[in-house]
């Protein structure tokens, strides 16, 4: 009798408990979605519109001249695109060309797709410029221009590295004191190395593809017309053989990881030291 009574009571409460359970799940999913959305929003950093100084008069020849550039507001990825993120894109692709290169000789990087599970938070490497661009388009975004990249790294000041002018172990370079010898670090491993705008890993770890073609004299002729007013939203030369890479990598000396250093590679190449981050034009608000 007692048992019957207890069961009956439990059965009577069941509809309520089911409702409560579904309500809980619903609320939990809502919270999770909000967290994910918030995280996604946080992962893009708004760089406000304005003028900044690009290039350098004292470093490499192709960084000359130092000149003013005006950029509209834009978003840039707080981190480089990770293995886990690229994996989501890759599994939907029918084009085998979008498969990242394998690095069997570098077990600390490894083969694709195993490395997506093994190192989900490492920046994706072994992708060509075309792969990076395709991913960006898939995400409804684009690659940053060279100017956008530099502004996000150096801010309004003339910082040699994103954190300032002193050589510090705040980036994954070929140095022995950064904690990541001969290997890639997970994104965001160097919080002290963040830029003025809070963008992470803009020095070292992996080079980053930018949207622009490389020209050693682009700054010179693009800024000639800008002698009186800053160049507005430059997008690089119209033609070229190489795409510009920025930021330096785990195999580079820190001097090559400066905010102004320009590197270039053939866009088809897939190497273990090149990745990318995303950018997006900010919508103009009308008052």
């Amino acid at each position: 009798m007692n048992t019957f009574y207890r069961n009956r009571k439990r059965n009577q409460n069941r509809p309520l408990s089911i409702i409560a359970r579904y309500l809980f799940i619903f609320l939990w999913s809502l919270t999770l979605s909000a967290v994910v959305l918030a995280a996604a929003a946080d992962d893009m950093i708004l760089i406000p519109a304005g003028t900044f100084t690009m290039g350098s008069d004292t470093r490499a020849a192709d960084e000359k001249p130092m000149h003013k550039v005006y950029l509209d507001a834009y978003y840039i990825g707080k981190y480089e695109v990770t293995n886990a993120e690229y994996y989501e894109f890759w599994k939907q692709q029918s084009d085998a060309a979008r498969t990242p290169e394998n690095f069997s000789h570098l077990p600390q990087i490894g083969d694709w797709p195993a490395r997506a599970a093994q190192f989900p938070n490492h920046p994706i490497v072994g992708i060509s410029w075309h792969d990076a661009n395709a991913y960006a388009v898939w995400k409804g975004m684009r690659l940053p221009t060279e100017a956008e990249w530099e502004k996000a790294a150096r801010g309004y000041t003339n910082r040699i590295w994103p954190w300032g002018n002193a050589i510090e172990p705040y980036a994954n370079t070929d140095a022995d004191d950064d904690g990541y010898q001969h290997r890639i670090a997970p994104v965001g491993s160097f919080p002290k190395g963040k830029s003025y705008y809070g963008v992470m890993d803009m020095a070292g770890n992996v080079w980053e593809w930018t949207a622009d073609w490389y020209s050693d004299v682009y700054y010179g002729y693009s800024s000639q017309a800008a002698a009186k007013r800053p160049k507005k939203n430059p997008t690089g030369p119209d033609v070229g053989s190489w795409r510009v890479l920025r930021g330096g990598s785990w195999i580079d000396k820190i001097a090559r990881c400066s905010t102004t250093f320009r590197f270039y590679l053939y866009p088809n190449l897939k190497t273990s030291f090149v990745g990318f981050r995303l950018a997006k034009t900010a919508q103009k608000t009308t008052k």
């Binding site: 290169e101 394998n102 690095f103 069997s104 000789h105 570098l106 195999i251 580079d252 090559r256 190497t271 273990s272 030291f273």
Partner: peptide, 16 residues
């Protein structure tokens, strides 16, 4: 192919 990749990568490192 794997060895090809390895040589290219190493080539870049030496070049830098």
């Amino acid at each position: 192919h794997s060895r090809h990749v390895q040589h290219v990568e190493q080539g870049f490192v030496f070049m830098f």
